[in-house]
């Protein structure tokens, strides 16, 4: 088994590395473009959500029912988001549906703009809770529900592709070193076959020795060159950085939305004046000294 593997890599290692580089470049390009589409889409989403929050703040909208408000604001954002985007290029429901029919299959619903909205609404209990949540975990849960974010073409996990592309530069160096050792391992036995008394007759042996040593050098050169290509691309066109920026943007917007809902639905604003009124009535009935009433007025202001 080991001999088969060594034999294969002894003959085709450089071709194998070239095929690996080609597929890495293709996946890298697709993942990069996908991440750019995601960044554009989520930027639009966060912008629209921030705009709706600002509009509500300016109107002085009161939030009595958090779930209802969440549905309303996310519904308004959903209306502004385009149905057909770079992200939903394969969204069949848009072309197949008639203009009167607002229906779509569940798979299309989850895979379209509605899926992200549904994910956030699914976390409605977090927005009802008065304790600030871990916004990173919240954003992680929301975005991991979006299969357009987590998968390439709905099947290939994009995190896996990204991690694989990040380790490939080192892997190519390793393959290069591996090829060098294979080349030397193939070259050294040829020395044993050399007849030092008849060097002219051993020319074929010497040729094979040189070819194997050259193969060892070529694999190292190929490994270094391929590693340089991918390192250059990873440095100037990083995928993971772009995804982290998008993630942070969504996390910030979730934070803004949570604090907006909590500040507006804060029961303290309603209950505290009521408590003061009750205390005033009690102090009047008990004929408490006036300075106590002044204290309650100062606390109210």
């Amino acid at each position: 088994m080991v001999e088969i593997i060594l034999g294969f890599f002894g003959n085709y290692l450089i071709e194998f590395m070239m095929a690996l580089l080609a597929s890495a470049l293709v996946f890298r390009y697709l993942a990069y473009r996908h991440s750019k589409d995601d960044e554009a889409y989520y930027s639009r989403f966060t912008r629209e959500l921030d705009t709706c929050i600002d509009e509500d703040k300016q109107k002085g909208l009161r939030i009595d029912d958090v779930d209802s408000y969440l549905s309303n604001i996310l519904g308004r954002v959903n209306q502004k988001l385009p149905t057909q985007t770079l992200r939903f290029r394969t969204n069949k429901n848009v072309s197949e549906r008639s203009s009167d029919d607002d229906r779509m299959s569940l798979g299309d619903y989850v895979g379209s703009k509605h899926g992200l909205i549904a994910s956030i609404q699914g976390e409605g209990s977090i927005f009802n809770c008065q304790v600030p949540p871990d916004f990173t975990e919240l954003t992680d849960r929301v975005m991991n529900d979006d299969k357009n974010w987590t998968k390439l073409f709905g099947h290939v996990p994009i995190e896996g592709v990204s991690r694989m592309i990040d380790i490939l530069p080192n892997l190519f160096i390793v393959f290069g070193v591996f090829g060098t050792f294979i080349g030397i391992a193939m070259a050294l036995p040829e020395i044993a076959n050399l007849d030092f008394n008849n060097l002219e007759g051993s020319s074929d042996t010497l040729t094979r020795f040189v070819i194997n040593v050259a193969y060892a050098m070529k694999t190292s050169i190929a490994g270094i060159a391929f590693s340089l290509v991918l390192t250059f691309l990873n440095t100037f066109f990083p995928i993971q950085d772009m995804r982290e920026r998008t993630f942070k943007k969504v996390e910030t917007t979730m934070q803004i939305l949570w604090y907006h809902i909590q500040n507006d639905s804060s029961k303290d604003k309603i209950i505290f004046p009521q408590i003061l009124e009750v205390l005033k009535e009690i102090s009047q009935k008990l004929n408490l000294p006036k300075d106590l009433e002044e204290l309650s007025k100062r606390k109210a202001s």
């Binding site: 549905s71 209306q79 229906r103 779509m104 299959s105 509605h114 549904a118």
Partner: peptide, 30 residues
């Protein structure tokens, strides 16, 4: 095999007297 219908405020899902063969489950909104 289900589908999802999206509605805006004041949209009717169905009216009294309509004939239908569908059951509905609210995913979001009210």
């Amino acid at each position: 095999s289900c589908s999802v219908k999206t509605l805006v405020p004041d949209d009717y899902i169905f009216k009294k007297g309509d004939e239908g063969d569908e059951i509905y489950l609210i995913l979001s909104g009210s």
